[in-house]
């Protein structure tokens, strides 16, 4: 309770510690989330996804700057990959945003994927709640950017920005990875580079062919110039900020915001169920050594995975297995 109050009062240490506890799967974290949950749901959550080297962090930095100019407070959750070999991670997105480090209206927190797939960390959902409870007006969530299937962001964000750069075979990647469907806004970044017009045209073609626009919103394609060119970059960022706001307004005016929030909430519930049902069961099976025994049984073909799973469910979730 104490921690929850402190977070609402804007205590940065308390907030960052709670996020840490969520990441570390410390059980008290759940209690605190329970306390802050009623105070969440106010921020506009914006996801930024795209391939590595697409310049996502630089755009996030630009978005921070613009929202601050409009006097909105900003929280950033930036996800980087955990090394599957060492379990360590270098979280380097923050470097691009360091000029905002001292701004009390900005909170930046880096998260490692810790094995989660889909471009985000498992803790992201709850971390968004924490930043929301801190009272931030806007929450920017930057995905890993491995070029893999990074569609998880759709379960968390109201607005998704997909960032592409010319000359990296991005358009093909994007279609393959299924991120065309999740984009509310496309950014062709580093648009001063050769091939940006071509990329723009290809995106247009794909959009023309697909079922998008749905519900009256056709994802705009913005060209943003080299971040080293202050005038061009500023122009691009102004446009982007307007489109982001435009998209949010559209969601509200067409009442689609409700659908998005419902999807987000459903996902949260899903995660919570997993965390409260599957994980404790797994933990017991692991600590008792039963899991290993089960594997042995399976290896010897003395049973099959479904029979064992139904048996476990039968022990813990009696009602479920009844036909």
């Amino acid at each position: 309770m104490e921690l929850g109050k402190r977070i609402k009062a804007g205590d940065i240490r308390a907030a960052s510690r709670l996020i840490r506890n969520i990441e570390d799967n410390v059980s008290e974290a759940k209690t605190t989330i329970k306390h802050i949950f009623p105070f969440t749901g106010n921020a506009h959550v914006i996801g930024i996804t795209g391939s590595p080297g697409a310049g996502k962090s630089t755009l996030v930095d630009g978005l921070i700057e613009w929202h601050r100019k409009l006097d909105r407070t900003v929280g950033v959750l930036a996800v980087d990959p955990t090394s599957p070999f060492t379990g360590g991670a270098i979280l380097g997105d923050r470097i691009r945003m360091q000029r905002h480090a001292e701004d009390p209206g900005v909170f930046v927190r880096s998260l490692a994927t810790r094995g989660a797939l889909g471009g985000l960390a498992k803790a992201v959902g709850d971390a968004i709640h924490v930043v929301d409870a801190m009272g931030k007006d806007v929450i920017l969530v930057e995905t890993v950017g491995t070029g893999q299937q990074e569609v998880e962001i759709i379960n968390h964000a109201h607005t998704v920005i997909v960032v592409l750069v010319p000359g990296m075979g991005d358009e093909i990647q994007a279609i393959k990875a299924g991120i065309m469907e999740i984009a509310d806004i496309f950014v062709v970044n580093k648009a001063d580079r050769e091939g940006s017009q071509k990329l723009h045209r290809e995106l247009m073609t794909v959009l023309d062919m697909s079922k998008i626009p749905k519900d009256g919103w056709r994802p705009p394609i913005l060209m943003i110039g080299n971040a080293f060119d202050p005038v061009e970059f500023d122009r691009g960022m102004t446009e982007l900020t307007e489109k982001v706001k435009g998209h949010y307004d559209h969601l509200i005016s067409t009442n689609q915001i409700g659908d998005r929030i419902r999807r987000k909430t459903r996902h949260e519930l899903n995660e919570a169920l997993r965390s409260c049902i599957l994980e404790p069961v797994m933990k017991m099976l692991v600590t008792s050594g039963e899991l290993d025994t089960m594997i042995d049984v399976l290896l010897k073909k003395e049973s099959d995975p479904y029979t064992i799973a139904e048996d476990v469910a039968g022990r813990y979730l009696q009602d479920c297995i009844k036909p």
């Binding site: 270098i90 380097g92 470097i95 691009r96 360091q98 000029r99 080293f228 060119d229 202050p230």
Partner: peptide, 11 residues
């Protein structure tokens, strides 16, 4: 006039 360049911190 030219903008300020900050270390992109590549590692």
């Amino acid at each position: 006039v030219f903008g300020e360049y900050r270390d992109p911190g590549l590692y």
